[in-house]
Design a protein around this nucleic acid. Structure first.
Length: 556
RNA sequence: GCGCGCGUAGCUCAGUGGAUAGAGCGUUGGCCUCCGGAGCCAAAGGUCGCAGGUUCGAAUCCUGCCGCGCGUGCCA
């Protein structure tokens, strides 16, 4: 990995602060101050240490400032140190530092910030996991873009991530789906359709029926009105596969990828669900009562016990989740993450109970709950109902606003907050979408560099730093320098929206820089410095956009 | 009722102990002889739901209350 330019300063301050205050392990908060006249960087470390050192914060700050001014390793880095307010330390950095950052970022390119995880882990990441009874809709799309982005970010900072899709291809909903397909099949062959109560009304069901008919020939024409058990079984199995193909196609279009698909049905057929329940019974974590088998989740902090096998002998979805999570736990590496919808948050306790009962540390399961996305259109909440068929499909959203805008919007907000996506805004004002703002910064860099190439400008990363820097150059370089920390933080917090926020900041700095500073045609060292700044910005924007699955066009 | 999440600018939302709380959209006013105006600069707009507490310092942590969402099935 590349050493973050800020880390060097941070480490030096930490060492000096420890010496001044006589405290062992000092953590130093170091970041841009609220106001530009307070310099390039600021830290409240002296105030933090005041209590432990039992000294006046300003006194600590003064002593620390003096040591930093005379620090042999920081001579080319820190130009000025001042103590301000109740004990803030404000730093003004030297031109050489800015030149160093620009050169380093430009050299590292898309590798800048990679591998910054402090403790790399093997992580099993499960997301989307919708049952194959219908196409992906807007509700799934948030989890898809979020999970995929988290996966990309975790990998980027150095974790070994396996992405898995749990196919809920078994149970009541699949039976309903199979019966719905059979009804459409019947229509297709001119027989009386038997649409079940609560069946799936969507047109896509007819598409599946058509594909099935093409596969099966006329062998089942007489067996769908009403369908017999064997037909339903086949339709559930094959129909599920065909439906999953459709889902995978949409996900591919949405630039979401998986390493593995894990079928619930295959688990049932291999006897793993029964075995999982038995394992819990053997360990005393499950018991029989009122004709049903119960999982003693209350022993692990859940509010009540849950049924695994109903009194009619059918196993519940929880039984499958037990088997699946025991399977996952055995191969998870260091950690597993489940990305689930808001309506599943009641499961957290149950899933952790599964791990605990299986002898695993429940803290190694992290459940991330996606809050709802609602759509507004014409200033009103768009009512979506599965039954009424008014669900907005991901494919339709992509056709409407494009993959880039859809992915950008869906991860722009924190996953744990419900938000409104205004369709009119996304549609009519797509020209002023924040995604274009960021992409334009990339295109603008490319444009500058194309101009430079046309003028025969040769890059010179080792050119001396310009003596005077424009405020916009300082701001841009400081933002670039912060990237490794931002992306590592986004990974730790599973927070792709922090990458988005960063990209908007970086784009703003680039646009401001563009308007104040020409690159091509300036004096040699100014031109050389700004060339590196431009190259670095282009690469970091492209890298950041890629982490959320958004393209970075050279021209727009 | 209980559990979890959320109340921050007109709207959508950042900000998980630091200085005078930010961005986008919307509103108002400026800026194209230029490496692309999909841009820039400026202005207006706030009891950070309410009330206490913790401390040098609270939008942030704790307690209570109010409001919204979700959950609380031998449904998936």
């Amino acid at each position: 990995m590349t050493t973050a330019p800020l880390t060097i300063i941070q480490t030096a301050i930490a060492a000096e602060a420890a010496a001044v205050a006589g405290v062992a392990d000092v953590t130093v908060e170091l970041g841009p101050p609220a106001r530009p006249e307070h310099g390039d960087l600021a830290t409240p470390v002296a105030m933090t240490l005041a209590k432990a050192a039992k000294r006046n914060p300003r006194e600590i700050a003064e002593a620390l400032a003096e040591r930093l001014r005379t620090h042999p390793d920081l001579a080319d880095t820190i130009a000025e140190v001042e103590v301000a307010g109740p004990g803030f330390l404000n730093l003004r950095l030297a031109p050489a530092w800015f030149a160093g950052v620009a050169g380093m970022v430009a050299r590292s390119g898309a590798e800048f910030g990679r591998g910054g995880a402090e403790h790399p882990e093997r992580i099993l990441l499960e997301f989307v996991s919708t049952n194959p009874t219908g196409p992906i809709h807007i509700g799934h799309a948030r989890g898809a873009s979020y999970g995929d982005s988290v996966g990309r970010i975790l990998s980027f900072v150095g974790h070994a991530v396996t992405r898995e899709y749990y196919i809920n291809d078994y149970g009541r909903q699949m039976e309903l789906f199979a019966a719905s397909v059979a009804a459409r099949y019947a229509e297709l062959v001119g027989a009386e359709p038997h649409m079940p109560e609560g069946g799936y009304p969507g047109e896509y069901v007819a598409d599946i029926a058509e594909k099935l008919r093409a596969e099966l020939g006329d062998a089942y024409d007489g067996r769908v009105s009403p369908p017999d058990a064997e037909t339903l079984e086949l339709f559930a199995r094959r129909g599920g596969v065909l439906m999953l193909d459709v889902i995978r196609e949409t996900l591919g279009r949405f630039r979401v990828s998986f390493d593995a698909f894990f079928s619930e049905r295959s688990m049932h057929e291999a006897g793993l669900v029964t075995a999982g329940v038995q394992r819990l019974r053997d360990s005393g974590d499950a018991y029989e009562s009122e004709g049903a088998v119960w999982f003693r989740t209350s022993g692990y902090g859940d509010e009540k016990d849950r049924v695994l096998v109903r009194s009619d002998g059918d196993s519940t979805y929880l039984a499958a989740d037990v088997a699946y999570h025991l399977d996952k736990a055995a191969r998870m590496g260091d950690r597993m993450i489940d990305v689930l919808g808001a309506d599943h948050h009641g499961y957290i306790g149950r899933l952790k109970a599964v791990l605990a009962a299986g002898g695993f540390d429940p803290d190694r399961l992290e459940v991330l709950i996606m809050q709802l996305v609602s759509l507004t259109e014409s200033g009103e909440a768009k009512r979506m109902s599965k039954r009424a068929g008014t669900i907005v499909l991901l494919d339709d959203l992509i056709d409407d606003i494009g993959v880039d805008a859809a992915r950008f919007f869906l991860v722009e907000r924190s996953h744990d907050t419900a938000f409104d996506l205004d369709l009119d805004l996304a549609r009519e004002q797509s020209q002023e979408n924040p995604v274009y703002y960021v992409q334009y910064a990339h295109a603008r860099c490319c444009s500058i560099l194309a101009k430079a190439e046309g003028e025969g400008v040769v890059r010179d990363p080792s050119a001396p730093a310009p003596a005077d820097l424009d405020p916009s150059e300082r701001a841009l370089a400081l933002t670039l320098a912060a990237w490794p920390r931002v992306v590592a933080d986004a990974a730790d917090r599973r927070a792709p929206h922090r990458v988005v926020a960063y990209l908007k900041d970086l784009a703003r700095d680039l646009h401001a820089f563009y308007h104040r500073c020409r690159v091509v045609g300036e004096s040699p060292e100014v031109q050389a410095f700004r060339m590196e700044l431009t190259v670095g910005t282009r690469d970091v924007v492209r890298c950041g956009l890629d982490l959320i699955g958004v393209t970075a066009p050279d021209r727009m």
